[in-house]
């Protein structure tokens, strides 16, 4: 699957493209591994831009949970943004809204997780 990554100050925004299902959940896990492996001063927060994700399976959700645990263990934060309606439904069914911060847009996520990053010109492009 295609995964676009960009950095805005100390926030990494990762934008997967396409469904995150059993065959390709490991692609996302591999893409997130370097972000999660960085030391605490490198990355304070991870925003997953799900604007181009049309479906997520249990294995995809597990990848998010693993990322959340890893980031939180070092004091970082994680958020998911711009859920498509079907993916928002899946989040509700899985009760993922209880364990991950979910925002309507990437701008909203950046504003909440790293206000300085959201003030950066072009941050939400």
């Amino acid at each position: 699957m295609d995964i676009v990554e960009r950095r805005i100050t100390d926030v990494v925004v990762v934008a997967p493209v396409g469904p995150i299902d059993h065959p390709n959940a490991q692609d996302l896990e591999r893409a997130l591994a370097p972000v999660l492996a960085r030391d605490a001063t490198g990355t304070s927060a991870l925003v997953l831009d799900f604007g181009s994700v049309g479906y997520v399976s249990s294995m995809g959700l597990r990848v998010l949970m693993v990322a959340a645990k890893a980031l939180r263990a070092r004091g970082g934060r994680i958020a998911v943004a711009a859920l498509q309606p079907v993916v928002a439904e899946i989040f509700d069914i899985a009760r993922f809204g209880h364990v991950l911060e979910v925002f309507p847009t990437v701008d909203d996520a950046l504003a909440a997780l790293a206000p300085s990053a959201s003030a950066t010109p072009g941050a939400a492009t």
Binding site: H22, S58, L61, K69, I93, V99
Partner: peptide
């Protein structure tokens, strides 16, 4: 729920409706 099964209740030995649907569909 799936969220509980893989977070606060991981290793408690139970599953979720979502995983049941997925396995049966496959």
């Amino acid at each position: 729920s799936l969220a509980d099964a893989i977070s606060v209740k991981a290793d408690w030995g139970h599953s979720s409706n979502i995983v049941g649907v997925e396995l049966c569909q496959m």
